[in-house]
Amino acid sequence: MPDIPTDAQQACFEAGIKFGSLYHQFAGTPVSPASTGSLETAMAEAIENQPHCESVSVDILDDRVADAIDHEEGYAELTGSLMEVEMRIDYEGTTVRTRMAMADGYPRMRLVAVEA
């Protein structure tokens, strides 16, 4: 008989779903320093609609966006290297806190804490 996931395991799974959705839904979106604020809000509000998602904080780093613009059209494509994200997931009394930030040249999505 298979083991039934614990609430903590299920909460971690839910966090993974939210990160996958956020990253793959918005990667490649055109972004400029003038549009980072509205895109941050849209991303956070879209992910917060999902079950068990209590909060999402998206910080698109204007200086990195400006540095990534390499043509005269004035925008870059959104990638993990241009943003930092934090989420809080609550599942059946277990809270999972997560963070995405660059580490060793790669946008790492990590568990910060699991609190029962």
Rank of each mutant, 00 (worst) to 15 (best):
P2H: 12
I4F: 13
P5K: 03
P5V: 08
T6G: 10
D7I: 02
Q9V: 02
Q9C: 03
Q9D: 12
A11L: 04
F13A: 05
E14D: 13
E14L: 09
A15S: 05
G16T: 09
G16R: 05
I17G: 01
F19A: 09
F19T: 00
G20Y: 10
L22R: 12
H24R: 15
F26A: 13
P30A: 12
V31T: 04
V31L: 05
A34Y: 07
S35N: 05
G37W: 05
E40R: 03
E40F: 06
M43R: 05
M43T: 13
M43I: 15
E45S: 03
I47Q: 06
I47V: 14
Q50M: 15
P51C: 05
P51W: 09
E54P: 00
E54L: 11
V56D: 00
S57G: 14
V58M: 10
D59F: 08
D63G: 00
R64G: 00
V65S: 06
A66R: 13
I69Y: 08
E77I: 01
L78N: 06
L78V: 08
S81E: 14
L82Y: 11
E86G: 12
D90T: 01
D90S: 05
E92N: 15
G93E: 07
T94W: 01
V96N: 03
M102N: 06
A103N: 15
A103Q: 13
A103M: 09
D104S: 11
Y106T: 09
Y106S: 14
P107F: 00
R108I: 05
M109D: 12
V114I: 11
E115H: 05
A116N: 12
